[in-house]
């Protein structure tokens, strides 16, 4: 049975080593830091915290090598990234209108007897839009995989063979945060979902997002734009039933229960998990454990803990 621990950020108060020792006291570890991009190899501190033999899977570097060696595959890969950006831009435009539909209702000072129904319909339209976007991205991914069959690509096969051995030899895999789209792309490119299935995984921030079912980008107060949470695409789906929200204290307007409630209702039945410094939730065999450290946002916009 797989055991997965999702953690809050590890840069300032790291406790990943402690978690690893608790879950897997023996054996070596493997780390994925592809979200750090060119700084993927800056793992000295991480290795110190883990305090045992640890191998970096170097997914970012491996992907660069694959793309460098096969320009035509690199072109197709980049074209797919451009397509994803285009899809995201169109979705974002439609999302602004759909969210305005919900908030306009919520702003009304007087709510008549049919308000609940109208609000539920507006929320349903918003969820439909989210689902359509996720489906469009998924279709495109499937098309790309069918057309280019990356897992059968010579270079990728060579790397996958090495990666499979490294993962099999490790007692756990730690997946760090960083750029969530870059991380996800590299995980997908090397078919890591299959290699990681059943392993003990410790993931934080973007790492936690990437292995969950759905990746939601969010920031309630960005310097530009409306700050509407949006689906990036489906994640690897190793951590099911949860929607990790790293740095929630900094990125979400926690004072607005209405806003939090809208977020949790929109993505239900996934549980929205705030993941700040020191936070941890555990999944065992795919089941979310409501242990001592469990916290989640409720559909009313409050925070529930294991004891509540």
């Amino acid at each position: 049975m797989s055991r997965i621990a999702l953690l809050g950020p590890q840069r300032l108060q790291p406790f990943v080593g402690e978690v690893a020792r608790g879950l897997e006291p023996h054996g070596s570890g493997a780390v994925i830091t592809a979200g750090w991009q060119e700084h993927e190899d800056a793992v000295v501190e991480l290795h110190e915290h883990l305090d045992r033999p640890t191998h970096n899977l170097d997914l970012y570097k491996r992907a660069e090598e694959v793309l460098r060696h096969d320009p035509s595959f690199a072109d197709a890969y980049r074209e797919r990234q451009n397509e994803l950006r285009e899809l995201q831009a169109y979705y974002r435009l439609r999302l602004d209108a759909a969210i305005e539909g919900v908030t306009a209702l919520e702003r009304r000072p007087e709510r008549g007897p049919r308000w609940e129904e109208a609000h539920a319909d507006a929320m349903k339209a918003l969820r439909t839009l989210d689902q359509e976007h996720a489906a469009r991205v998924e279709e495109g991914n499937a098309r790309f995989e069918k057309q280019h069959n990356p897992l059968e690509h010579d270079h990728i096969r060579k790397h996958r063979k090495q990666l499979r051995k490294m993962v099999d030899d490790a007692s756990f895999v730690a997946i760090a945060g960083g750029h969530v789209a870059v991380l996800l792309n590299r995980l997908r490119l090397f078919g890591m979902a299959e290699l990681l299935a059943g392993k003990t995984i410790i993931a934080w921030s973007a790492g936690a997002m990437a292995i969950s079912e759905t990746i939601v980008l969010f920031h309630d107060n960005p310097p530009q734009g409306a700050g509407n949470a949006e689906i990036l695409e489906n994640g690897l789906g190793l951590a099911r039933g949860v929607l990790p929200l790293p740095h929630s204290k900094r990125r979400l307007n926690l004072a607005s229960r209405e806003r939090i409630a809208r977020l949790t209702n929109r993505f239900a039945p996934l549980r929205c998990i705030p993941m700040d410094e020191g936070d941890r939730v555990d999944l065992d065999g795919g089941v979310l454990l409501k242990n001592r450290t469990y916290r989640a946002f409720t559909t009313a916009g409050a925070v529930e803990t294991a004891g509540v």
Binding site: P9, G35, G177, G178, V180, A181, P222, P223, Q224
Partner: peptide
């Protein structure tokens, strides 16, 4: 600056 040269805030969760 964030209008002209937006950073990766939306995508990066460290």
């Amino acid at each position: 600056l964030s209008f002209l040269f937006p950073g990766p805030l939306w995508m990066v969760y460290e």
